[in-house]
Design a protein around this nucleic acid. Structure first.
Lengths: 347, 347
DNA sequence: GGACGTGGGAGACAGATGAGCAACAGGAAC
DNA sequence: GTTCCTGTTGCTCATCTGTCTCCCACGTCC
């Protein structure tokens, strides 16, 4: 266990050498010429004394803190936040960095969010990850530009900042594709009413995928409600009581799918025998626990956190030029997670 | 927007005073005697230049970083982690501190967890929060003792470290009490099979509450299974098909309650008309979204995070002596969250 | 010649880093 | 065989990072 009161100086005295030498040895400075014997002695004594470096002093001198700031809009309001943080934390740890986390409200004023970034800058973080908790356009604090930064799960209104986002279209195509593949020809969509990119992109992908499969995508039934269980229930009741009720249902998210499960049960429809359902988000608490298990599309939160951190560190270390990547957001794929809610339609 | 290259020195030069004076003014040092005019000038120039303090240098000099370390076992494996982090983060921010988060695996070796704490110590955090993601006994890294620290959601095997834990017994009593209050006399319990404090305490509280209400607590039906949806389903099927099937069901957690919902549905039992159910955990994704909404007991994760942070900071600032509080863990209450899964039993 | 009002100088915090210095070896010149 | 020169090895000195803080200095007024 290292002792917080031991400095490089104490090691130097105990080893009978200068602090410079100790520093050289401990940092394995390439140009330092020090005999193997001295090196050994220094290292041994450092260990004996329980020396541990003072990262503050190091950082002050080297202008590198090895800390990354993560400003997260609404930690914990959604379980997704945790996955982003985890991805970032593990990627950071793997490269010797640590994470300083600040929570901010997505609805907070620009000034307040700017103050949060400012706090990070005062601590001289090497770079900043700015994570929003659902994919949308955000207005960023201007001072974000003072250090390398990457946007996670959203794109900036202004544009030019490196960002990672999920492949909404690909995910939606995979979801609808799974239904088509099982043989469904009457496929419906329960969409969200919020005006976010996902709403539009999933709808478009829904129609396009059907059309490309030779069905009439434009005529396919779509019902929109708030993207919660209740909304899903209501939208599902409407869509399932139409004359041309679908046998395959793509839901905007798992919560709406959960509502659809209830609507189906009330209408005497068994899943998947009478109705196949596919969700989006892979909220495990729901998707894995519904009965039958919900086939859904996973959002790559962990991967986005890790990707962003990886590239941020590359930029900090001068291995990458973020401005080049800022031209287009990086898109990470959303894999289909197969469970038991899809089967072939009744003949 | 503040400029990272401007130091106190630059402000001093621009204002035509010494760095000492600038430092005095900006920190509002009480014993400093500086004319109002000079103060104004310094402040104005600091603002113009976009001066922002270098917290690293300050920390080096003052031996205070204003950073707290939060080592969290398994961020994001459970949504609870987020609430603890949020509680800690908001409490910290309110008092001018920031959080440095390190994720560690609960199953990781003691050495690896010690290394995580070590990383925090090297950065000279003022204190450490050690959060586990479910209430149990943990073996702590020894170096935790080097700075003030507080344990969140568990107690140490060794004992003497300040800790906050949820009031398992009170929560269980509230849950069972809600059933009794509604008039139920045949009450059952779906328990967990893990050997954790919660398992024993909730069971004991269950029996005691019944007995105190004049019922035969020792004879009340209890079925144990793994604390997941499937386990809840199986345990519920067993308990509901007994001769003395209960009309009120207390479930170890919301996931098991979710399983109980399905079992009830299959057995033709309507909730709450035929069967009243109460859960534990208040996992909103489940509890609020089941139909009918699940009455359950909330775990005070946010509150524990906030409490721990608050008291940790008090200790750091010398306002509290943590060793005094270490004698007994602090217990935070688990409030009952009423939804729609409880009603009076059929006459 | 104190008291008061204003302000500055010089470490110290813990470590990083380039320039420089002493000691010694080997080779060449005398 | 001694002296001079050049290289190498092994290590140290001085200075720097940005800020705080104790202590001192200077002038003026009574």
């Amino acid at each position: 266990m290292s002792n917080r009161n031991i400095g490089i100086k104490d090691v130097a005295v105990a080893a009978g050498v200068s602090v410079t030498t100790v520093s050289h040895v401990l940092n394995e400075v390439s140009y330092a010429r020090i005999s193997p014997e001295t090196r050994d002695k220094v290292r041994t004594i450092a260990e004996q004394l329980g020396y541990g470096p003072n990262r503050l002093a190091q950082a002050l001198r080297t202008q590198r803190t090895g800390m990354l700031g993560l400003v997260s809009e609404d930690i914990a309001t959604t379980p997704h936040a945790g996955r982003i943080i985890l991805g970032a934390e593990e990627a950071a740890k793997a490269r010797g960095y640590n994470l300083m986390i600040i929570n901010t409200s997505g609805s907070a004023s620009l000034e307040s969010r700017q103050a949060d970034v400012e706090a990070l800058l005062e601590r001289r973080v090497d770079g900043i990850l700015y994570a929003t908790m659902y994919h949308r356009n955000v207005e960023l604090p201007a001072n974000l530009g003072s250090v390398p930064s990457v946007l996670v799960d959203s794109v900036a209104t202004g544009g030019n900042i490196t960002a990672v986002i999920p492949d909404e279209e690909g995910g939606a195509r995979a979801a609808v594709g799974a239904l088509l593949e099982a043989g469904h020809t009457r496929v419906g969509f329960l969409n969200n009413t919020d005006d976010v990119p996902a709403t539009r992109q999933r709808l478009q992908a829904f129609r396009a995928t059907l059309t490309e499969a030779g069905l009439d995508g434009d005529a396919a039934p779509v019902e929109s409600e708030v993207s919660e269980v209740q909304g899903g229930y209501e939208a599902a009741r409407r869509i399932l009581t139409r004359e041309d009720a679908p046998t395959g249902l793509f839901c905007y998210n798992d919560r709406m799918a959960m509502g659809a499960y209830r609507a189906a049960a009330e209408l005497g429809l068994t899943i998947p025998a009478d109705l196949s359902v596919v969700g989006f988000d892979d909220q495990e608490l729901i998707a894995a626990n519904l009965h039958p298990g919900l086939t859904t599309v996973a959002l790559p939160h962990y991967e986005m956190g890790a990707w962003a951190t990886e590239h941020l560190i590359d930029a900090v270390e001068g291995k990458t030029d973020l401005t080049l990547m800022a031209l287009h957001p990086t898109i990470l794929s959303c894999p289909l997670v197969r469970r038991d809610s899809i089967t072939a339609p009744r003949p």
